[in-house]
Simulated assay, not measured.
Amino acid sequence: MDVPNAVTYELRDRVAWVGLNRPQKRNAINDALLSEFEAAARRAQGEARAMVVHGHGPCFCAGLDLAEHRAREPAEVFHHSRRWHAVFAAVRRGHIPAIAALHGATVGGGLELAAACHLRVADASTFFALPEGTRGIYVGGGASVHVARLLGAPRMMDMMLTGRVLDAAAAERAGLVQYLVPEGEAPAKAAELSAKVADMAPLTVLGVLQALPRIQDMSEDDGLFVESVMAALAQTGPEAAERLADFVAKRAAKVAGPGQG
Results as ranks from 00 to 15, higher is better:
196 K>Q: 03
236 T>H: 04
245 A>W: 01
182 P>T: 04
211 A>M: 12
172 E>S: 14
118 H>S: 11
180 L>I: 10
223 G>V: 12
235 Q>P: 00
232 A>S: 02
194 S>G: 03
175 G>V: 15
184 G>H: 02
158 D>M: 04
234 A>K: 02
156 M>Y: 11
157 M>G: 08
175 G>Q: 15
149 R>N: 11
236 T>V: 00
191 A>Q: 06
254 K>T: 08
217 D>G: 09
229 V>D: 07
236 T>E: 03
175 G>M: 15
244 L>E: 02
221 D>L: 11
131 P>G: 02
181 V>C: 14
231 A>P: 00
146 H>F: 11
165 V>H: 03
237 G>C: 03
182 P>G: 06
206 L>W: 14
245 A>E: 04
145 V>P: 01
215 I>K: 12
247 F>H: 07
228 S>H: 08
162 T>H: 10
138 Y>A: 13
199 D>T: 01
177 V>G: 09
128 F>A: 09
206 L>H: 13
190 A>L: 03
254 K>G: 05
180 L>C: 11
180 L>F: 06
252 A>P: 01
192 E>S: 08
235 Q>L: 01
224 L>Y: 03
130 L>S: 07
189 K>P: 05
147 V>M: 13
130 L>R: 10
201 A>M: 08
216 Q>C: 07
123 D>E: 15
166 L>A: 04
118 H>F: 04
213 P>C: 14
222 D>Y: 04
148 A>R: 05
132 E>K: 10
194 S>R: 06
230 M>K: 05
145 V>I: 09
244 L>D: 02
248 V>K: 05
230 M>C: 13
239 E>L: 05
208 V>D: 11
223 G>K: 08
156 M>T: 11
165 V>T: 08
219 S>R: 08
206 L>R: 14
245 A>S: 06
133 G>L: 14
241 A>K: 03
168 A>Q: 12
161 L>M: 15
244 L>C: 04
247 F>R: 09
156 M>S: 10
190 A>G: 05
249 A>N: 05
173 R>T: 08
210 Q>A: 14
116 A>T: 07
